[in-house]
């Protein structure tokens, strides 16, 4: 189980990364994150939506309502051009954190 702070910090890059694979909707995004993290990242489902709306407001993603095959309306989200740039930036940021942690752990193990 991850800490609350880590979950909060990783939400944004994870959402952007998932959406960089193509447009998706809330429930599917949560399932995807659950699968990617091997069940370690547990989000309160409802908290996903305000984050998505914040990203949309920031212009990183856009949304549209689509009727599903069972006739249910779903809001699909996809990355904008700014969102794609943000994915690259987030990747660099998290890579540097990952690299620093790996080095620190390696030194600690020696």
């Amino acid at each position: 189980m991850s800490s609350k702070e880590l979950v909060a910090a990783s939400t944004r890059p994870l959402l952007l990364a998932v959406l960089s694979q193509g447009e998706s909707y809330g429930y599917a995004i949560i399932n995807k994150v659950h699968d990617l993290s091997g069940g370690h990242l547990q989000w309160t489902d409802g908290m996903l939506y305000p984050v998505l709306h914040r990203l949309e407001k920031e212009g990183l993603i856009r949304s549209r309502w689509v009727k599903s095959e069972v006739g249910r309306r779903r809001r699909y989200y996809e990355l904008t051009d700014d969102g794609r740039v943000a994915v690259t930036e987030e990747r660099l940021r998290w890579k540097s954190v990952d690299l620093a942690l790996r080095k620190a752990w390696r030194l600690a193990a020696c």
Binding site: Y49, P50, K57
Partner: peptide, 20 residues
């Protein structure tokens, strides 16, 4: 239960809407 209580969700939405 997994969706969570509506009040905290609403609070988060309010934060997103507030600057507007």
């Amino acid at each position: 239960a997994r969706l969570g209580e509506v009040a905290p969700i609403d609070t988060e939405y309010s934060k997103v809407r507030m600057p507007n």
